[in-house]
C-alpha cells in the first residue's frame, strides 16, 4: 500500500470541513468554512487540469510567437494593448478554449461555464 496521495489528502480535508466542522458553525464562520472547502476543491481540479491548460498556452505561444509558454498570456495581452495583433477567429478560439479550461478548474458551476460550453462545444474541456 502506498502512502496517502496529495489528492486524497485534499479530499479528506474537504470532507472533514463539510461534514464535521460546517454543521457546528453558523453565520460568518460557516460561510468562511464553505469558502475553505471550495478552495480545496479548486486545488484538486487545478492539479488535474493544469497540464491541458499549459498545452493550450504552448500551442498559442508557438502560433503567435509569444515567447516562453509561461509568458504567453502576458505577451498576448501586451500585443492586444498595442493593437499589434489581429483579433481573428483562431485567436478568439484560443481565448475561448483557455477561459473554458480555466473556469472548469475555478468554478465549473458558474452559469457562464455552461453557456460557454453550449456556445463553443468544440473548445470545451
Amino acid at each position: 500500500m502506498s502512502q496517502t496521495e496529495a489528492t486524497e489528502l485534499l479530499q479528506a480535508v474537504q470532507s472533514f470541513l463539510r461534514q464535521q466542522v460546517l454543521p457546528q458553525l453558523e453565520g460568518f464562520d460557516a460561510y468562511t468554512t464553505r469558502v475553505a472547502a471550495n478552495s480545496l476543491a479548486i486545488v484538486a481540479r487545478d492539479y488535474a487540469g493544469r497540464d491541458e491548460l499549459n498545452r493550450l498556452d504552448q500551442a498559442a505561444a508557438k502560433r503567435w510567437d509569444l515567447g516562453e509558454t509561461a509568458a504567453a498570456t502576458k505577451n498576448l495581452s501586451l500585443a492586444l494593448k498595442n493593437r499589434s495583433i489581429a483579433v481573428d477567429q483562431p485567436l478568439l478560439d484560443y481565448l475561448r478554449a483557455r477561459s473554458l479550461h480555466q473556469l472548469a478548474i475555478d468554478n465549473p458551476r458558474y452559469s457562464g461555464f455552461q453557456q460557454g460550453c453550449e456556445r463553443w462545444p468544440g473548445l470545451a474541456p
Binding site: 468562511t32 469558502v35 475553505a36 471550495n38 478552495s39 479548486i42 483579433v87 478568439l92 481565448l95 475561448r96 477561459s99 473554458l100 480555466q102 473556469l103 478548474i105 475555478d106 468554478n107 458558474y110 457562464g112 461555464f113 453557456q115 460557454g116 456556445r119
Partner: peptide, 25 residues
Amino acid sequence: LERAAVGRRNSESEMDLLLLLDGRL
C-alpha cells in the same frame, strides 16, 4: 481567506466577456 479565494473567480469575468463580445468584435 475570502480575499485569496475570490481571486479565482477572475475566470468568471473572462467567460462573461467572451460571451458578451461574441459577434461584436
